[in-house]
Nucleic acid binder design. Sequence first.
DNA 1: CGGCGCCTTGACTTGCATCAAAAGTAGTGG
DNA 2: CCACTACTTTTGATGCAAGTCAAGGCGCCG
Lengths: 246, 246
Amino acid sequence: MSVEHATEQRCDNIAPANCADCRMAAICLPISLEIDDINKLASIIRRGRPLQRKEHIYRAGEPFKSVYAVHSGSVKTVKVTEEGIEQITGFHLPGELIGMDGIASNVHSNSAITLETSSICEIPFHRLEELSAKIPSLQRRFFQLMSKEIAEEQTLITMLSKNSAEERIAALLLSISLRHQYRGLSAREFLLPMSRSDIANYLGLTIETVSRVFARLNKNGIIDLDKKHIKINNIDALKPAAFCRS
Amino acid sequence: MSVEHATEQRCDNIAPANCADCRMAAICLPISLEIDDINKLASIIRRGRPLQRKEHIYRAGEPFKSVYAVHSGSVKTVKVTEEGIEQITGFHLPGELIGMDGIASNVHSNSAITLETSSICEIPFHRLEELSAKIPSLQRRFFQLMSKEIAEEQTLITMLSKNSAEERIAALLLSISLRHQYRGLSAREFLLPMSRSDIANYLGLTIETVSRVFARLNKNGIIDLDKKHIKINNIDALKPAAFCRS
DNA sequence: CGGCGCCTTGACTTGCATCAAAAGTAGTGG
DNA sequence: CCACTACTTTTGATGCAAGTCAAGGCGCCG
């Protein structure tokens, strides 16, 4: 809707979101909401101005007020331990929701940082709570999103605990590929929005190891890699089953 | 309350829980619920018969119907990958809630298995949802519990990704110690309900490494260990800070 | 053109895994 | 109560995947 764009231009800070017209809505809210309910939800969501690469959406330690949906671009979430060690806890693509780690303690336990120019929708949590109590399918949807995050983290835990460097990198590529596909984009060819050192940090490896594994996959012809541009030639070779017979 | 015991005796399968009198309630539901609301919640909770060691509470793949609170004893949750690799995703002590990973897909993604004789309360999820929509503080509490689980898993992720074998084991001991203390039990002396191989699996190590690290901590006098019985002599030596200067 | 990040590649080191075997513990049944 | 079997834990010897250290390449921007 052109109105949406116009609003964004005029208002230099935040604009009301128009979820009914957002092509990500099917992903961030794939629920059978009545059009009426979608509009109620949209009315509490605010679309922020586009953020540049490396800007913070929220910082660890800040009071928790909202959760956020990635509208376009990409984001990493980072946890910092008391000793100052940084751990990337997730990479987030359009249609994905972030910030739910702050609900428990009312303080964000992670920081969220854009990996590229991104546009982010803000959802004030107390209003989401109120609305959830009134719209059962929204409450359920939100429980589901949190549960999904738990399940995804468990997958990462298993990977860190049991898999080799090559398996971890293969799994990350597959995950990104799958999420692209889900959004109707190419599963075989895309840009990696994150740096090698982000990948290493996320997967519990060093940059050198990440670089060497990419080089090996490239030499084997499983992928074609040119800096951040990746093309997967043999998607099956990246699947877990491929590692059983090697 | 003796009535509660009487009920348990009579009914060989399940008995209604009496949350108002349960000494775990302060932990599993530390919310400012009206006594009235507590009773509404209690009315949907069922206390199962005591389970023996190694019994399943639910199995991965089963339809998701309920979440469960550990009333007494202890439980491990285990995720099995498609390739059949098992990863323990958590150890759960009295007052802790399990099974929330199943909400997203309506199927349990983990199995839950008792580590010792345990008594477990079952909370049918659809009734919890209904009640949450009516009692705002309950809805919030449940969001918080899920968020807490996310934050805890992120801690495990960081540990698996960044810490040495010794640091991981120290962190596990500290975590158990803290949870004992929270329940008013000794922070310095307790029984480890899980086997060495469970610990190894959870922390992404081998049993041999776990055994060696325990032996080293024992020799250093940091802990006294006799099979599963552990006594922490120098709790500070287990804290992350202790590893900065070593 | 020179400085700065980011990435790659090579040589070497190391913490933990693997393999192997013995010792300890628990459960079962005669 | 002991003998037998099966499992868990400990301890030792060896190997390897990934980390560390170091140097050089590439792209970007002032």
